[in-house]
């Protein structure tokens, strides 16, 4: 499993990154959360609002920061 957080470094992007790390820790997954901040790479995913979460190359959501419990659900589903 590969988890990426897309964001250019805005407040909400950092929030999502921290939250995702926390979720991964709580779920006891052995996954590295990668931060993608290069704008060209972000746009290549076809999204236009940040932050966004990508799991195994699939965009799960964009433009908002969900609650921790929702985020865990999303990660569990993969």
């Amino acid at each position: 499993m590969k988890i990426q957080v897309l964001g250019t470094g805005c407040t909400k992007c950092n929030q999502l990154f921290a939250l995702t790390e926390k979720a991964v820790q709580d779920l006891e997954l052995n996954v590295e959360v990668e931060k993608v901040s290069d704008i060209n790479e972000i746009v290549a995913f076809g999204i236009m609002t940040i932050p966004a979460l990508v799991i195994d190359g699939d965009v799960k959501f964009a433009g908002n920061v969900p609650s921790l419990s929702n985020l865990k659900e999303i990660i569990k589903k993969g």
Binding site: G7, T11, I42, V43, M48, I50
Partner: peptide, 17 residues
């Protein structure tokens, strides 16, 4: 649509694309 200035660049590029 809701607006967040941090999204204006990806949005700009996305539209241009």
């Amino acid at each position: 649509t809701p607006f967040c200035s941090c999204s204006s660049i990806p949005l700009f590029l996305g539209f241009t694309q």
